[in-house]
Design a binder for these strands. Structure first.
Length: 661
RNA sequence: GGCGAGAUAGCUCAGUUGGCUAGAGCACACGGUUCAUACCCGUGGUGUCGAGGGUUCGAAUCCCCCUCUCGCUACCA
């Protein structure tokens, strides 16, 4: 009853679509930590869920011809099913469309507003009409627009902002005095050097350009923008109330012991979230771990290529525990991991089938063959036993040490070292030789007993990571999983127990070539399906090709548009801008004039291939200096979701200087 | 451009505050074994520890410089 609590969370998954395997990794990682902590004796609360608001979802729902709520109900269901399929033992699945969450977010927003941490942009915010940009006071340069230097006017489009700078010093102090707060530590420097030390900018916390969000209850033109909505799930999910009526559960669980998140959202969890909590007067989470990504080895995953791997695909091929093992084992602590069908097969064959599966199988087979399945400790010990026992009974400490540092992959390696030691023990003792000598019968029985006992201890450790497998093994051995307290003792397996007489193969060896072929066939089928769907209607065409939704800008008048002068230009010379990673400097012939234009496209076009291209140019843009080079216009490009750029060129041959209208 | 991390066996990586012949896993080769899922056990590397210089009795480990890679960030008209 006096158990220490442990509150662990994952990031909540965005319900814009089905998560691929890289996104499913986090829940499995969190689950293995949660299970391990439970065994360590903690009273664990494990929360996950879905983030369901935002314009992207509003648009996708509109495309699909359903309401946003119907859309997210659907996707949230899919996500929950996936989490369940992966055997994740979460205690709570929160959705940001849950009523209690929405109500509490409104209350929090109101409270922060009333206490002055949130302010309406129109009061202090300023707008630069030519730049179409909204600035906060702290961003202005000499009271003017930092981009063009012109005067700014009070905001045209109002929005609410959070005063981040007010709490920055406290946060810097906290991070400096709590080195464990941001994991891995290399991320701490990035946050400090890029955001905290240069000075925090205020954060926009409301939107009025779309409706699918939690309304600001005292200003219904606005909805609460993503971070204040999403991050607060960690406290609303356990019963936080900003008016002081938080539940007992909240009192007990908060602050969280670990927020497990992807490395892409570290900034929000280590800067904005702590500051929100400071503003609410709540303690900060103890640790935020930004894990790396699991990337697909054979080319980027993309829906149009039809090669996106989902967790349920892998489960169909390999089974739940093999997938869990793979993602946990293959994911290093700091760098991105790689997933491919070949690697999966290799891990499955070498670790799961050969080392573990075969060990269990051969042990049970020998017990049956020599003793009719009865496992007895006859006490015929020999010196070689000591090292086996030492390795097995000390494994718990080694695994604990790895888990303490969140080194889950290393923890798994420690556990498999136990199984490898067992295989070696068989070789050392040569049971098949002992079996030939009637006088060695007791020794043979003892050897097999030691093996069974070692395996039971090994799989008791494995249970946190591969629960189904651990259960299967002890069932075959006619034993039960041991609590951690008993894992440092050797010899608790009841002497005289009888193991199964029909050992089941735990993991069948697979052929990499076959698997790759099957996977390719699956992808081909999926592509065909997508194409078939594409043929049936216009809507389907869109879903077959990737689309991008970007933030909408305010409507402009034709007069606004007419101010822009676009012309076709020919690039007659192009060179790299020194001291710049992204910039190319082009001489562009526009009619009889030549303009120098600097563009951030070095990563997509070489200087040589630029020359000769006919491109579209925004001509009457005010010249600016970039990296010390004057630029007198802008080359137009299209940009995809990954930031790849494509220059726009006239579809037919056009003379330099032709107007684009 | 700013800040940071890294460059160690074919591949993925370990290498604590500098110390004996630089390690692990996988892959590969050979040997052993046969209880087992053609499995398991053992053995095998002339690795310039990215290049160069320095400190030291001694450096993969500390300092300087160079090259390259990566992350975050700014710029990206």
């Amino acid at each position: 009853m006096d158990k220490k609590k442990y509150y662990i969370t994952t990031a909540i998954a965005y319900t814009s679509g089905k998560p691929h395997i890289g996104n499913s990794y986090e829940i499995v990682l969190a689950d293995s930590i949660a299970r391990f902590k439970r065994k360590e004796g903690y009273d664990v609360f494990f929360q996950t869920g879905t983030d369901e608001h935002g314009e992207k979802i509003e648009l996708k729902a509109a495309d699909a011809g359903i309401t946003p709520k119907e859309f997210v109900d659907n996707v949230a269901g899919t996500i929950k099913d996936l989490w369940d399929l992966m055997d994740t033992s979460y205690d709570k699945f929160i959705r940001t469309t849950d009523t209690y969450h929405e109500k509490q977010v409104q209350k929090i927003f109101r409270r922060l507003y009333e206490q002055g941490d949130i302010y309406k942009g129109a009061y202090e915010g300023l707008y630069c009409t030519p730049c179409e940009s909204f600035w906060t006071e702290s961003q202005l340069v000499d009271g003017k627009c930092p981009d063009c230097g012109r005067d700014v006017t009070p905001a045209k489009e109002e929005a609410y902002f959070f005063k981040m700078s007010k709490y920055a010093d406290r946060l810097i102090e906290h991070i400096n005095t709590h080195p464990e707060f941001i994991q891995p530590v290399s991320r701490k420097n990035e946050m400090m050097n890029n955001f905290l030390l240069p000075g925090l900018q205020d954060l926009c916390v409301s939107r009025s350009s779309f409706k699918w969000g939690i309304p600001v209850d005292f200003d219904d033109k606005h909805v609460v923008y993503v971070w204040l909505d999403a991050l607060t799930n960690y406290i609303t999910g356990i019963g936080y109330d900003c008016e002081g009526n938080s539940t007992e559960q909240y009192q007990k669980l908060w602050p969280a012991d670990l927020h497990l998140i992807g490395k892409d959202i570290i900034r929000f969890h280590t800067i904005y979230w702590p500051i929100f909590l400071m503003a609410l007067g709540e303690p900060l989470p103890k640790q935020v771990f930004g894990h790396p990504w699991l990337l697909q080895g054979d080319g980027k995953m993309s829906k149009s290529k039809g090669n996106v791997i989902y967790a349920d695909d892998l489960v169909d091929f390999f089974g739940v525990d093999a997938v869990r093992y793979f993602v946990l084992h293959e994911m290093p602590f700091e760098n991105d991991g790689v997933i491919s069908w070949e690697l999966l097969v290799e891990r499955l064959n070498s670790d799961l089938a050969n080392t573990l599966g075969n060990l269990v199988n051969r042990t049970i087979s020998m017990s049956n063959k020599y003793f009719g399945g009865v496992v007895e400790n006859k006490g015929a010990a020999e010196a070689v036993d000591e090292d086996l026992k030492a390795v097995v009974t000390s494994a718990l400490d080694r695994v604990k040490a790895k888990m303490e540092g969140l080194r889950v992959a290393d923890a798994l390696t420690e556990i498999f070292a136990v199984f490898k030691r067992c295989n070696k023990y068989i070789d050392e003792t040569e049971p098949w030789v002992l079996a030939k000598d009637e006088a060695k019968k007791d020794r043979l029985a003892t050897v097999l007993y030691n093996l069974v006992e070692s395996i039971v201890i090994g799989v008791s450790l494995l249970d946190s990571y591969m629960p189904k497998t651990a259960e299967k093994v002890v069932t075959q051995l006619n034993a039960t999983l041991r609590p951690f307290e008993e894992l440092t003792q050797f010899g608790l397996y009841p002497s005289g127990n009888k193991v199964t007489d029909a050992p089941e193969i735990l993991f069948a060896r697979l052929d990499a070539k076959e698997i790759v072929e099957k996977a390719e066939a699956m992808f081909a089928a999926r592509r065909a399906e997508a194409e078939a769907a594409a043929g049936t209607g216009e809507e389907a065409v869109e879903s077959a090709e990737p689309v991008i939704d970007i933030e909408k800008k305010p409507e402009i008048s034709y007069d606004d548009f007419a101010k822009l002068q676009f012309q076709v230009g020919k690039i007659i010379k192009c060179e790299e801008v020194p001291k710049s990673k992204k910039l190319l400097c082009s001489q562009v012939q526009i009619g009889s004039e030549v303009k120098q234009i600097v563009s951030g496209i070095k990563q997509h076009y070489s200087a040589e291939e630029m020359v000769g291209k006919k491109v579209m140019v925004l001509v009457n843009l005010k010249p600016a200096t970039l990296a010390g080079v004057v630029s007198e216009g802008m080359l137009l490009c299209a940009e995809d979701a990954d930031g790849n750029l494509a220059l726009l060129t006239p579809e037919k041959e056009m003379p330099s200087g032709a107007e684009i209208c």
